[in-house]
Nucleic acid binder design. Structure first.
Lengths: 199, 199
DNA sequence: CCTACCGATCGGTAGG
DNA sequence: CCTACCGATCGGTAGG
């Protein structure tokens, strides 16, 4: 056995660091995620942790990317199975609600939390968070537009407004689950979505 | 002049500390608010700042109270002029939207930010944040119920659901303003409120 | 990947 | 309200 780690082992370590990081940052925020704490929980030295990323900011960006992979697998992927337009929009909303109810990230939606943490701090992390939300909003709007054009939504439906409303419902759900631990919130969110999308 | 500050002067100092604290915490969060930074910006010593509150947690609670005074003056007070039920609910929503558009707190809604920061950290600060939201929700629900009972909302309107939806719209607005700097968001929020409350 | 270290900053205290 | 200080922890670096 050579004392040097193989590339595969290094990748495994990096992946383990990111898993832990997502768990910590989900509860404590991306700033609350500290190198020292990561090192302690992973039984590594601080420099061992930092060596994989270089700086804390690079670590934060990598954590965002890992969280995005989870979000895509949980929310975007299920919707690919459904037909474009209203059916897909419904699956998207249901997957989104379910992802929050099941607390896939124990601290609630990773991106909503990161948005609040970084919206007042210019820099690459803020830019990355904003880009993810912009992509998500564009996707919601596209499906809403398709649904409206297909005649599956009331005439005069505005895709922008609908995407805005759906985003708000999900934020209210996230808030109710995380702050109030309200077990009824999922029910409310589903009723509100149904009022918008029927079904 | 006695070297000791009078009670009035001490209150003035305390008030100045809280004003600065609200400004800092609004942008950086209640944890990002540090004694050292406050001391620097106020040209005081750290112990001089801390002496007014005892601990950082006590300072955070005092800051929340000060922020609540602002919120009440901005959003609750205007609504008292309006008749109970639908008229008051409309004024409440408009004041709420306006408060976010004008960025009364430069970092967006103080309580939404605090909720995200503390929902995973049990303790007095978290409890205080939750209590403010519970009071706000109760108020929204009460006016929604009155409006429904007066027949000013479509029959079958659920006050709980309506309060949930309105809260979501405001959160989406807060997010759009703070993260996306979207100048159209206030317009979207008003249209969504109008779709719910008419007018 | 490690040990050993850096300067800066944290909340808080002692004593006046 | 101050100075002077405490132990802990921060992100990061040097050198191996």
């Amino acid at each position: 056995m050579s004392p040097r780690r193989s590339a595969a082992e290094a990748l495994g370590t990096r992946s383990a660091i990111l898993d832990r990081s997502v768990a910590i940052a989900s509860a404590e925020g991306l700033e609350g995620l500290t190198i020292g704490r990561l090192a302690l929980e992973l039984d590594m030295s601080k420099s061992g942790v930092l060596g994989h990323f270089g700086t804390k900011e690079a670590l934060q960006l990598a954590v965002l990317e890992r969280a995005d992979e989870v979000f895509r697998a949980e929310v975007w992927e299920p919707a690919r199975q459904a037909a474009p337009g209203l059916p897909r929009l419904r699956v998207l909303c249901e997957a989104w609600i379910s992802y929050l109810e099941r607390e896939v990230f124990p601290g609630g939606c990773f991106f909503v939390a990161a948005a609040h943490e970084f919206d007042g701090r210019p820099g690459p992390v803020r830019d990355a968070v904003e880009a993810r939300f912009a992509a998500w909003r564009a996707r919601l709007r596209k499906e809403a537009r398709r649904a409206a054009e297909a005649g599956d939504l009331p005439s005069g439906t505005d895709a922008d407004l609908l995407a805005f409303e759906l985003t708000g419902l999900v934020m209210a759900l996230n808030h109710a689950v995380q702050l109030h631990r309200d077990p009824e919130a999922g029910h409310l969110a589903r009723r509100a979505v149904r009022a918008r999308l029927g079904g």
